[in-house]
Design a protein around this nucleic acid. Sequence first.
DNA 1: AACCACCCCAACCGCAACAGT
DNA 2: CACTGTTGCGGTTGGGGTGGT
Length: 256
Amino acid sequence: MCTKNPKQGFNKVSWSATEDSILAEHVRTHGEGRWGRVPKRTGLNRCPRSCRLRWLNYLRPDIKRGNISIEEEDLIIRLHNLLGNRWSLIAGRLPGRTDNEIKNYWNTVLKKKKLKVPSVESMHSNGEGDQKCKSKKEIGSPQFECPTLFNESSACKEHDNRTSKREYKEAWLNAGKIPDVSFFSLEDSYTFDQLMGSDIEQIGSSCVLDIDDLEKDQRIWGSAYSPMSFDDSWGISDNWFSWLGENSMESYILPL
DNA sequence: AACCACCCCAACCGCAACAGT
DNA sequence: CACTGTTGCGGTTGGGGTGGT
């Protein structure tokens, strides 16, 4: 655990080029992980978490530098509509971008853009567009921008009764099929309709289907396309789930 | 040139989940 | 099962840069 400066409370210190090179060299030699040992081994006067963060957000070789493109911005907006403030998941769909970067971009750029354009949800609520949850459990429910009478409180309440991430994952792996999806609300289905053009589709409260990866495999995609029809009331038809289960599509299911 | 206000982003925090013993 | 250390995540904030006066 990083400790606060007892005198000044909070004391941010930027990483120097020397520190960066020491850390980068250490990761190159020993690999990622075991961050608790890094400060001792390298002599860096940094806490393990600070080292990890510096590597993940700045030093990693696959980090993409430069401005967020229009395409990336569009994807961020669509994924945020789908997933809410789950920055790591959103970042996972943007190669080379970190969750911190996307979070910052949202808070400094996109949030303002969103405020400028009156959304439907603002007409139904007090205008607080972003969810303000105190814990990750509360964040669990994606905040959908629904054109109808979406009710956030009822959606959150619904989420409490949903299967936990771990149970969901285990159930999927053990049973070889997608567990109960009866929690799909009518409101959610409207969101799926809106997101038909997206490369990612939510198939439950705790996982999404990676359409991008699916499309890469032409054999699978070709045979999958026909049963993947969308149902008017539930967003994704039962055919999807049965087809996915029959064809061992675990690798295309991304747990949230 | 000096000051101020604002903005952006890196770095921090608390909490929760996970892994190991 | 309980405990402890580690890791991952989202929220928050201090520092530095920039533009306006």
